[in-house]
Design a protein around this nucleic acid. Structure first.
Lengths: 368, 368
DNA sequence: CTTAAGTACGTAAGCGCTTACGTGAGGATG
DNA sequence: CATCCTCACGTAAGCGCTTACGTACTTAAG
């Protein structure tokens, strides 16, 4: 099937020029006669020859490949990691950005490999690496950074050693809670958090608190319940919550999975969503649109995140010594029905109207 | 940040050996004294050195990278292509299989590029290519196959020139319709297909027909409606259908999106699912579990498909001349509620019980 | 003690490109 | 007509590894 590939020498001799000329022809043919260029190109096409990427990479010291490192969650099934959907979206964005400049993207799951193993099987093959937060211990990231440029995703709040692109978790949560308090007038809210040590969960909770306090409402110093970012965890958390207190007016969940779990429990408890109690999520997973009532949540631009990340990475590959950059991208609030919008309140007055409201968070900020 | 990488020469001189010895040490250190090996390895670690992938690739004629080529649907938004979820799952599987042998995977969306462009920016960088069906015109695939091994995914029914791994669409649909006819006793069914020229849609319809005919039921020669594999298309298709005939007992949809659309219009038409009319899907997308009633559908093992594909690819890289292989993987039927299971029939008798039934389709078959 | 067979490592020839530099031809300039 | 450019292309030195082959030294056998 795959016959022996021809080399640049073959193309050169068949078109009666030197390899240098062939190479030039393949790269725009600047400074050469169009006639020769076309002749060479014709031969190359006929032979089905394109320059070997490895050799090219060796000679140019540029592989034309950027890597994306993520934590794979299949198997171990730890919900603390990035949602698979996130990873996929980031990869898509990365692919797009890379392709637009002729590069390709290499993906690799950490799979518990150490920095050195990854250096061998991944880093050695690429020009730079995008590493998803939490996919790797910090010292491994540092080890990798010894050999190639790195930009992290979602570590803004925890580190400032690398270029980073993050999403405005806190601001997003503030916006959604503002909506609950201001537009719906809820005063009795609770927060269902993810794993207590999850930075995402912490940031989201911080946003929740900020919003409440800014409106003069009391807020607990820690989440009212913990649902581990899973649907089942959300169910359990809410079940327990309902045992200990009367139903709140609104349940703010750290992500959609838990919100879906919460809605399930509420339904079984004969509490109506959103008229008896409102629920909000975070992430805008596909199911959040299909669940009834449709979930009010926040959409994170993970594809843009991936795109930005490789852009920054490529910038740094070209300019290794430029100053560190960190950007945080804004989110979009998806106001649907579970918050009470588009549904009659007890007073019979329809409140609000489902819509999407975009929030422009801090844009690009140069951190150091 | 990223300081100049050291080379094998540096490691060699610092540990007082030749580059050959360093290389040997890095590759298991067979035939050398453990003492020397450890010394070399220590120096390498200290320097943070790992052999450069490009150079290694050049010397060994093996990049240690397999590529996955898919059609990216963002932007153009043609629903005829692979569902994004499919692609992601396939990629995950590919990543797993590649990693398990120390390789990495390069991903690239076609983006309307020609075979030659892809050869340059993708094929030249990898040892072999997995190409998702329909991501590329056949003659482009052939062009690529001139230079590297290729295995296709999902082209079994349309081509037999490459190694291929596919999913048993037809058998899966037969199983689900069998369930509808045999277990539920429906005799009046309709089929909502995807794009009429979509091979997947055609295969699924074929399975539908086969099942009906095998039970002595009449079946139309073409789908009763066409929903383009989208939710909105499913709604439209069903709306139209309902205008022209009385509601059937069961609506068999070519995929989940259309099924979800169908359930929506059924609900609006005050028809109860599944007691008035049953609905089934195909694909087992995340929302199919969350929709009410939960959708009976079929799960495709796309991750396994990806895994198998790179396994076969790697085999062929090692054995370019072995005979062509094609495998078709079995699906799993997810029997949930939308088919009528776990719900009371008009006669008051509960029918069946939701469960998952695995179906073992044809396994590995050597085609030529 | 001689010789054969290992063992542990060094030598050096590539792998297939890119590119700095060199060269010769032709045109412009004076 | 001599000189200087410019243009189009060739020469050849790497890029950083791997590995076939060679060599020196040990050990075992005869």
């Amino acid at each position: 099937m795959a016959n022996a590939r021809s080399t640049i020498y073959e193309v050169a001799s068949r078109s009666g020029v030197s390899t240098a000329t062939v190479s030039r022809a393949m790269h725009g043919g600047v400074g050469m006669s169009p006639t020769t260029r076309d002749r060479v190109l014709a031969v190359a096409t006929e032979l089905g020859w394109v320059p070997d990427g490895r050799a090219r990479g060796l000679a140019t010291r540029r592989a034309g490949i950027v890597g994306v490192l993520f934590h794979d969650l299949d198997g171990s099934g730890e919900a603390e990691e990035e949602s698979p959907l996130y990873v996929d979206e980031v990869i898509r964005g990365a692919e797009r950005a890379a392709t637009s400049v002729g590069d390709a993207v290499l993906i690799a799951a950490t799979r518990g490999r150490t920095g050195r193993e990854l250096a061998f099987s991944v880093a050695a093959k690429v020009d730079g690496l995008v590493v998803l937060a939490r996919s790797l211990a910090k010292r491994d990231v540092l080890a990798l950074a010894r050999s190639i440029p790195i930009v992290t995703i979602g570590t803004r709040a925890r580190s400032n050693e690398f270029d980073d692109v993050s999403v405005d978790n806190r601001g997003a949560m503030r916006t959604i809670v503002d909506h609950l308090v201001v537009d719906h007038g809820y005063t009795d809210l609770v927060f269902v958090g993810g794993p207590s040590r999850s930075p995402d969960s912490m940031e989201r909770f911080a946003g929740y608190r900020e919003s409440l306090r800014s409106h003069g409402l009391a807020a607990a110093t820690s989440p009212d319940a913990e649902g581990g970012f899973t649907e089942i965890g959300g169910s359990r958390a809410l079940t327990e919550l309902l045992l200990n207190r009367k139903p709140p007016q609104a349940i703010v969940c750290g992500n959609d999975e838990m919100a879906i779990g919460a809605v399930g429990v509420l339904r079984r408890a004969r509490l109506r969503v959103p008229s008896d109690v409102a629920v909000t999520g975070f992430d805008d997973i596909a199911s959040s649109r299909h669940i009834r009532p449709a979930l009010t949540t926040v959409h994170q631009p993970m594809r843009d995140v991936g795109e930005q990340a490789v852009r920054m990475l490529l910038d740094r590959v070209g300019q290794p010594e430029s100053r560190r950059r960190a950007v945080v991208l804004p989110t979009t609030t998806k106001v649907r029905h579970s918050c009470g919008c588009g549904v009659r309140t007890p007073s019979g007055r329809p409140v609000g109207k489902p819509r999407s409201s975009a929030r422009s968070a801090k844009s690009e900020e140069v951190v150091s």
